[in-house]
């Protein structure tokens, strides 16, 4: 078993779209253009990138929801897509949209997830209450339909769903987007606590530079499907010639983007 939690090597993903219903033309959009990176077990790695840079595609590949068109992916020592069953048992994912049955309550949604992973009802309910309590979710709303809950509360339930399973690897796809500052801080504190107590490996995508700096040991910057820079927050700032991480993000991804577009244009 590898000591790497994630090993991604030259991963490519292209989406093809056909226009017109009969003999229409097919267009290609490269979401990932040979991305390589790795995460050690227990590490927190941040993926930064503008919208459409390939962050969510990468998370979907790692979540077994997308099959890459090229390259190699290993999660917790298991190869994807060949060993997806083993990977599924060991990962938790939180996406930017809190995907739930909105008519069902937090309790019903979480019990459904717990049953899917083979948990007992009593054990799952106890753990769900404990996690939600620590996340600052008002437990009096535990049995109310989620459609009546705020976005922040829904996102806390989404985080609880991922943590309920006690996975060694957490894939967090913009987990705090749209949360108010208090909720955001509660979630960030919980993620820190989780790392301290359980040594959970975390892959986090975010647009929040402060969050990336606070939570991540290393940060990768994605732009147009390519990893354009990687290192600690300090490394990236130094690489960009000083300033803040946001300055580094704009400079590194922006410069590389222009360069890539030019290169593509020349190649064409």
């Amino acid at each position: 078993m590898s000591c790497l939690a994630i090993r991604v090597s030259q991963v490519k993903k292209v989406f093809r779209k056909r226009t017109g219903w009969w003999r229409g033309q097919s267009t290609e959009e490269w979401a990932l253009k040979g991305v390589s990176f790795h995460l050690k077990q227990g590490e927190a790695y941040g993926l930064l990138g503008p919208n459409g840079s390939g962050k969510s595609t990468l998370i979907r590949v790692l979540s077994t929801l997308l099959v890459p068109d090229g390259g190699e992916v290993e999660v917790l020592g298991y190869k994807l897509p060949e060993q997806e069953a083993q990977v599924r048992e060991r990962i938790g994912r939180v996406s930017v949209d809190a995907a739930f049955y909105k008519k069902l309550s937090a309790r019903e949604n979480l019990l459904y997830s717990a049953f899917l992973y083979g948990f007992d009802k009593a054990e799952a309910e106890k753990r769900a209450r404990e996690i939600l309590g620590r996340l600052g979710f008002p437990l009096r709303r535990f049995s109310d339909p989620l459609e009546e809950a705020s976005r922040g509360m829904q996102q806390k339930v989404a985080i609880a769903r991922a943590l309920l399973l006690q996975p060694p690897l957490l894939l967090l796809d913009e987990p705090t987007t749209g949360l108010d500052p208090k909720s955001k801080r509660e979630v960030q504190e919980f993620i820190e606590e989780l790392r301290r107590e359980s040594g959970t490996t975390i892959l986090l995508t975010t647009h929040d530079m402060f969050e990336a700096e606070r939570l991540c040991d290393r940060i990768g910057m994605l732009a147009h499907g390519s990893l354009v820079a990687e290192g600690s927050a300090e490394d990236l700032v130094r690489l960009a010639g000083g300033g803040t991480l946001e300055d580094a993000f704009i400079k590194l991804s922006g410069e590389k983007l222009t360069g890539e577009e030019e290169a593509t244009a020349e190649g064409a």
Partner: peptide, 13 residues
Amino acid sequence: WEGTLEYTFMAPV
């Protein structure tokens, strides 16, 4: 419609 399809498909079931 509910947006839960990905979560069902990534469960170990």
